[in-house]
């Protein structure tokens, strides 16, 4: 699965991009989107409104394609409209006109994909933790079996400990269920941790696109464009100024272990 933006500049009455956008998103790994046009991409991909330029899903125009794309917004107080998880699914199925025969099967399968069981249906929304709410939000969007999932700030309001379940679900959706997962985030640490490909916008145009590691380790490029350097990358960059070359780490605990042994080795050598 591939999405291509060809000379896209916005909608007929809302040309939000300052230059025509030409980008390519692939489903082989999680893609990240960063920067000032981040919030515009979902509206283009899901509203199916007329836009200037061409967006293609594989070789078919987005407007003619039957592929389903869902957008999962940030979790906020109005995310859920009813009292229980079951009511939320019922409301969603009515909205999507899912027939009663398919209804239960689809719910069970959606919940399974996010690692939850049907006991959650009885739960009141107010009793759910933030990570559980996020998982239910993802499960609700999976009921239509979408091929593309756009998720905005997946870890917002979550502590590092309860990010784990969301991270696993997103990786599973991409690797196990072969969905195209696109993470929209202004947090370079999230993008560095979660994505393999990255599209960066700045000044309402494409700034760069390519391999996430390559882009987010280029500290000169990031600093020139006033973009935060990921914490783990910055740590290594500062270490270099003290003539300490550390390997790349993706987790804080690995960094700490690495630093510990590095300091011991340096002391031994001295």
């Amino acid at each position: 699965m591939e999405i291509r933006f060809l000379n896209v500049i916005g909608e007929e009455n809302n040309k939000f991009a300052s230059k025509r956008i030409n980008i390519r998103l692939k489903s082989t790994s999680i893609t990240g989107i960063y920067g000032d046009l981040l919030e515009r991409i979902p509206s283009l991909l899901t509203r199916k409104k007329e836009y200037l330029g061409n967006i293609k899903l594989n070789d078919t125009s987005l407007l003619k394609s039957n592929k389903l794309i869902v957008y999962i917004g940030k979790l906020h107080k109005d995310t859920f409209l009813t009292r229980t998880v079951s009511d939320e699914f019922y409301l969603m199925s009515k909205y999507l006109k899912i027939n009663d025969k398919e209804y239960l099967e689809k719910i069970k399968s959606s919940l399974k994909m996010v690692g939850l069981n049907k006991n959650y249906l009885k739960r009141e929304i107010k009793t759910l933790s933030r990570s559980e709410k996020r998982l239910i939000q993802i499960a609700l969007s999976l009921i239509i079996n979408p091929e593309v999932i756009l998720i905005n700030e997946p870890f917002l309001y979550l502590t590092k400990d309860n990010r784990f379940s969301i991270k696993k679900v997103l990786l599973d959706l991409c690797n196990k269920y072969e969905k195209m997962v696109i993470i929209l985030s202004q947090d370079v640490n999230v993008l560095y941790e979660m994505t393999k490909e990255l599209i960066m916008f700045k000044d309402n145009q494409v700034l760069a696109s390519g391999n996430t590691n390559f882009l987010l380790k280029d500290t000169a490029f990031l600093e020139k464009n006033k973009i935060n350097v990921p914490d783990l990358v910055l740590f290594n960059k500062i270490a270099l100024t003290y003539d300490q070359k550390l390997p790349d780490y993706n987790e804080v605990n690995d960094l700490i272990k690495g630093v510990y042994y590095h300091v011991l080795e340096t002391k031994d050598q001295a």
């Binding site: 979550l158 502590t159 590092k160 804080v252 700490i256 630093v259 510990y260 300091v263």
Partner: peptide, 19 residues
């Protein structure tokens, strides 16, 4: 229930190892 920022997290962990 707080999310520990990178610098605080790293500081406390390095402190634990007496670094």
């Amino acid at each position: 229930g707080f999310n520990i920022p990178f610098l605080i997290d790293v500081s406390n962990k390095l402190k634990f190892y007496n670094l």
